[in-house]
Design a protein around this nucleic acid. Structure first.
Lengths: 234, 234, 234, 234
DNA sequence: AATGAATGAGAGTTCATTCAT
DNA sequence: CATGAATGAACTCTCATTCAT
């Protein structure tokens, strides 16, 4: 998403359309994210997305040529568009690779896992097969970069002698699985599963414990037990 | 050469009316299970269910008064209708409660988790909010009985002094969570997640390891490490 | 309707089909009359007619080749098939023509107007245009014979010097109109008109007063005021 | 020679979208009134209503959320929405109450009885029982206000000493009955009743004679025979 | 003679998408 | 740019009629 331009100073103070024109796509994307996560892709009505963004249905199609393109834009805005920054951040990390993994997960939880966007994972899980083009897109724009990102971290550990040489395919999944599961749990607070689950489980603790188990399997020598069991950081 | 007829050597030529009333509901339920699991509830077309069962759209409504009733019948046939037998089986179990839990999970995997029906879990997770009546039904007919069944096993462990007294609500979920997750993983082999995952993870091993962790938390004294890590049994 | 034959003595006492075979059409006609009057033609389901007659839907089509034929049979059974008897009865009448008209209306009310069959009038009024073949049939089998019957009575009055010569077309309608209206009133006891009407109006009195007005217009010299204002006879 | 286009010289060529939002509801209501009166409620197809209004099926649902709402809108537009004006008109009437009743009936015939909308009465009579929500609506929005309106006129006559004290319930119906009957007669000119009837009966004369009878029953002292027997006014 | 399982055209309704304004 | 009226294909569900048994 391009950074929002300041409102053009030559225009009168916007009587009918109160919001800045340049903010429209952002508002549409925010409304779409809300509704996709709440109702799923198929069950979300473009008209409601438009209404929630304060524009007409026609305007939505001015910015996004179809419902699928709208969804892709939501994914790009909230997920795939951020990989380059994440990659940069992690390339700049200088500590040990186990610490790096811990840092990675903590950051992911703060920025993604705990946010609305994590509902996209459940959505794709449930509806991917019905919308092959979206599935292809998601695989290419999210799954692959995520695998690559994690793979690079793991490879760093191997290269630095911290991790045993391992089958990257499975190892990546070992890191990814708890993250996916946590997202599912968080978004399972609908009518058919007891919301008590959500309160029971402290996400940070869950991730910490899972990470410890993973690291035990990855590292050349056993890692020291981590000491932070609280909610703050991993 | 005439176009190849569908291979149905045991059936008569079947002009239009076939009169197989007793077989129809089963065929429809099987087709419906396939499609609900494959496409979800909303995206499944009753006409395709009928076609896959080899009948017309109207015939389906002869047996099931609506799409929702069809779904409920699928759930009853494959899940909720079986709780009474499972309850009976577990009431008759005579070994230790940890063994009982192991037996329970092994049986569940053989009969439910590894079968198509396990896709219903993912379906309800994703679409429950959009179909409140189905969510209510599923909660009542599946979730509650499952919680009760597991709760009874745990209570047996407590009563026999094998398990520490515990908050049943969370403990039940500790048992259920890995089962639910495994179902999700198995049914995530759609276009957006690499099916390689499914091959990587040996369900029996996954359950065994999860169970061991759970038992460590439940038992009064640590359980011996189980020795069977292979695919055979838990 | 042919008179019901006694059950054939050579058959066993009818295990599955309890009712006499020869009674079937009559039971179907009775059920059809009930439902046509209650719901109208289009809204009546043949399956419900069959169910109410205690037979299957297929059996109904064994006796009546279509829903329209069923309706025609109901009309023949209850209305048009009786004109020949009525004609015979009135041909045998020997009193004055005003008395004959009084007798005619009283008989009509007893046999037709007060019976369920009078609902057919409202039905044809409301749905005739939607079922042209039924309208044609009804016009030919009911309207025309009724006009002829009344016309013959009026002509008798003219021929005997009791009635002034009159335009038969309008005169017939003057007799028919109150009868039709009365039927409508009687069958208007549905949700949208106050049923109090039905209790307010004494049909016999209504007919008597209408008849008196008509006779005043028809007769060569004024008729004596009729004395019977009670419910008994006209 | 090209096939004759429909004569619409005032309209632009109208490729697909015509943008006449303010005109649409009226056109749809007019088409709906036509078809409801012609075919009844159940037999009227929303698609034909739309086609007759020159729009697609979907467009109809843009303005009316269901077929029943469309019907209600027709009733509001043509009947119930006019009671307030009628009430105002009659409140402003200053002559004698018998004259007021005459005026009321004459106005009713001009505006309602002789118009297409009077077919709605027949429709409700025939189909009310099959559509309980419509029956409830009609009872509330039409029957009750009509009873109140007539009741107020009669009460005025009593209050001014023109009418004898009477049981309002029956008296109201005495006024209403001839109006209802007249509507039925007018709309009985379908295939099953000879349209000659309609020509025979002069509605204004019919109402005048009925009114005279009613007034004879209502008034404290006999009214003078009205002199206008022609078609002009009552 | 009697059944009732099966059909399929057609109903009301929804919604992503288009396009004249 | 922005609108929102209009579209029409697709959906679930109904029911008179057929026909193998």
């Amino acid at each position: 998403m391009p950074p929002a331009k300041p409102p053009s100073p030559s225009r009168p103070p916007a009587t009918r359309h109160e919001r800045r024109k340049d903010a429209r796509p952002g508002e549409l994307l925010a409304a779409a994210l809300d509704l996709f996560v709440e109702k799923g892709f198929a069950a979300t009505r473009v008209e409601e997305v438009a209404r929630r963004a304060g524009v007409s249905k026609g305007t939505l199609f001015l910015y996004f040529s179809s419902k699928e393109e709208l969804f892709k834009a939501v994914v790009r805005e909230n997920i795939s568009g951020r990989f380059s920054q994440w990659n940069a951040e992690f390339n700049a990390f200088e500590g040990s690779t186990p610490d790096m993994l811990r840092y990675c997960m903590a950051l992911w939880w703060q920025r993604q896992g705990s946010a609305k966007v994590s509902g996209i994972t459940k959505l794709m899980l449930g509806e991917g097969k019905n919308f092959p083009e979206l599935a292809r897109f998601y695989q290419q724009e999210v799954i692959q970069p995520a695998h690559l990102l994690i793979g690079r971290i793991l490879q760093r550990g191997i290269d630095r002698g911290e991790f045993a040489p391992l089958d990257m395919k499975y190892a990546v999944f070992a890191v990814l699985a708890p993250m996916i599961f946590l997202q599912l749990l968080v978004h399972a607070n609908n009518a058919c599963y007891d919301p008590a689950q959500a309160t029971e489980l402290v996400p940070e603790d869950y991730l910490a414990s899972q990470l410890q188990i993973i690291l035990a399997g990855l590292c050349v020598r056993p890692v020291r037990a981590t000491t932070n069991k609280g909610k703050t950081a991993l």
